[in-house]
Structure formats: structure tokens, C-alpha cells
Amino acid sequence: MALKAKEQNIAVFGETGSGKTVLLSSFFGATQEPSFRKANPYRVLADDTGQGRRLRQNYLRMRDDAQAPLATRFEAKSYSFTVRPNEDDTSTEHSFNALRLVWHDYPGEWFEEEPSDAEEAQRRIETFKRLMTSDVAVVLIDGQKLLEYAGEEEKYLKSVLWNIDEGLGRLRDDILTDGKPLEEFPRIWVLALSKADLHPTMNVQSFKDLVERKSADDLAILHKTLRSFVEVPEALSLGEDFLLLSSAKFETERIEITNRIGLDLILPIATMLPLERVTQWAESLNIPFKVLQKLVDNADDLARVLTPFIAKILEHVPGVGKWLSRLLSPAIVSLVMLSKDKLQQLVDRAMEDRDYLSAMLAQFRLDLMDGVDQDVLEKSAW
């Protein structure tokens, strides 16, 4: 079957040493383990063989030789992965049969240091324009730095948020044509605690409480800056979604890569969280879906895949009141309202029907719910 993929983008921001390289290597390496394919209805393939080999090598060296990847500096890279069902889908109705996740890695040094020359300055602008294709941005808060600033965490958090705010401010005039706000821009900014294993007593709620207690004003300033970049600024989330991440546990003579935290939520966050948030914005902000779907990649395409499947499986679609006039389909609202038990039934039925794409997308939604229940993910209140 010919591959027809829809692209989802995620941008990862983190200062020097925050763990971006380890995070990416652990994310991809784990998906190549036989146990991953057995446990999930999909597989992850690197579109660039060379990149995939290097990430896999980093992972194996951590797993087998206790060697951490070399730190990268001033390297702005994008990594592309194809996410496709384990087996060919029998459905002929879908307009696509795979997802393409593009992971944009923004060098932390570029928010911390001035460009060395005009060429580097231009490269930063071009890199950020690529980042703007993302629906979701993840801002890494370094767990090691929080330990170093224990009791004065606001100093570290302020530096992270201010560096991003000032970096965006410097790029604003170069990115906005005649000051016109952008339609395409990350709409969901997730604050993620990297190296969460260093904080064994901290769950995602206590991480959220810490950030809000120590840096509420700085979040408000950054939020105002982000809103100045976009059309429909109401449809933008910052300080509403929090995530715990641990790529591996570094010990004296070994690196434990099996007790990872949060990495299995990267794909669901990039794919299903925007669709969920579009539904929420349509209700709370009174913004028509036809407007919102222009702001979030593939919202309409994902909806079209899931709608006939959900409508076929459910005996009836739960009433959704005034949403019906705004959303493409009430079935999509059903997806974000269903209980975990009902979602699991949908996944199981889709697998039986060999509708593997629907099973994969519904599983992503189920994964988000599991992340919340496990105190790893905190999402914007419904």
C-alpha cells in the first residue's frame, strides 16, 4: 500500500544541558525495541536513515555502555519520523494511512547568546520559521537546575522564560511581514520538567504548583509576547499544560533506560492534544471550527478519519448541545468526552476490524488519559 502521511510538528526548546539530545535519542531508541511493537499498534521509522542510526547508537550506548550522548551546541536540527500502523489498513476510506512527526530541536544557546555574525542571525530566523509549523512547543525545565536553585527556583525559571521572551522579541520584526500576525504558529506551549527522576517525590501537580508559585508573572509576560505573534490570540495555551519527562536514570556506573517517564506521551501530545484543544476552544471561546482548523495542522483530516469509525461503533453519539453547530462532527467531541473503558472498546473493535489507523489515533487519546491518571501529564481544565 502506498504511503500517504499527514505531518505533525513539535518544537522542543531547552537551555544548554537540559537534556534535549538524551530525550530525543531515548524517545526514538525505545520505539525500535521489539517490546514496543508488541505493546503498540504502530511503529516509528526514521525518515533519514543516518539520523535514525545515530539516535539508535546513542540509545544503545546509554543502555549497554553507560555512555551519555555528546552535548550539541548551536545545532538546529529537524528530525522526521513516520508513524504507521503495524499492519496495512483494510479501510479504503482514509485519505492517509500514516503520520509524520517532525521534531524541531531549537538550540538553547540561541536564546542565551547573541549571534556571532549576520549569517548566524539569518540562520536563527530561518530556523524559527520552521519551528512555526508546529502546533505544540515543549519548553524544558531542567530538573538538575531546579535542584541547584533549591529554595530560589524563581531565579532559574525567570532566566528560562525571559530568554525565550527576549529571543522572540528580537526575531519579531524579521518574522512578521509588516507586523501582520501569523496564522501558523505553535498554539500549545507545554512546560516539561526534564530529568524528572531527580525529583522522585514530585508529581506533575506539584511541578505545576512550583512553576505557578515562583514564576506566574514571567509566564504572563511570555504569554503576552506569544499572543502578539498570532491571529486569533485567544486560541493559545501557555502555563496550562505540564509534563514530567525522564529519558533515563543516570547512576554511577550505569544508565537505566527502562524506567522512563513521559516519553510515550510525545506522539499523543503532538497528534491528539491539538485536536482536543480545538474542541475546547470551539466551546469556551465561541470560535467556529472552520476558523480553528486553519490554525491547527490536520484537525480536519484527523476528524474525517475518526468520525465514521466512532459513529459506526457507538450506538449513539452523546449529546453535545451547541457544539453541534460549530464542529465538523459530534463524533469528534465524543472522542474527547469518552471514558477510558469506552475508548479501550473502540481501540479493540478497530483492531478487530483491521481499521488500524483509527485504532492508533484512539490509542493516542487513551495514552493522554493514562498520562493524566499517572500524574505525569496535567492538561488545561476542560
Rank of each mutant, 00 (worst) to 15 (best):
K155F: 14
E119F: 12
L263Q: 00
G167N: 14
K294H: 08
Q205M: 09
A11C: 13
S78N: 13
L295I: 07
L168V: 06
S194P: 09
E75Y: 07
D142L: 10
L343V: 10
A118M: 07
V22F: 04
T21F: 04
E253R: 15
S116W: 12
V333H: 03
R326E: 02
L245I: 08
E183Y: 03
T201K: 15
A137N: 02
A121P: 04
P308S: 08
F242P: 07
T258L: 07
V320W: 06
L265N: 00
Y149N: 15
I310K: 03
R354I: 05
N58D: 09
F81D: 00
L147D: 13
S159G: 11
L191R: 01
D64L: 14
I310M: 11
N298R: 09
G14Y: 01
V44I: 03
T31Q: 06
S228A: 14
M272Q: 02
D218T: 14
A235H: 05
L140Y: 04
L314Y: 06
E378V: 11
L198W: 02
S284M: 14
R354T: 08
D173W: 06
D241L: 13
W162Y: 13
L357S: 00
D367T: 04
L361F: 09
S228Y: 11
I164V: 15
Q344C: 10
V376W: 09
R254S: 05
F111S: 01
V376H: 10
L327D: 00
L157M: 15
V12N: 01
V22G: 10
G262H: 05
D348S: 08
T271R: 10
V278N: 01
L263P: 00
I269K: 01
L193Y: 13
F250L: 12
T133Q: 08
D174F: 11
K342H: 05
T21K: 05
E7V: 11
L368V: 04
R100V: 01
V296K: 06
D135T: 01
R260M: 03
S215F: 15
P85T: 02
E153Y: 14
Q345F: 13
V230Q: 02
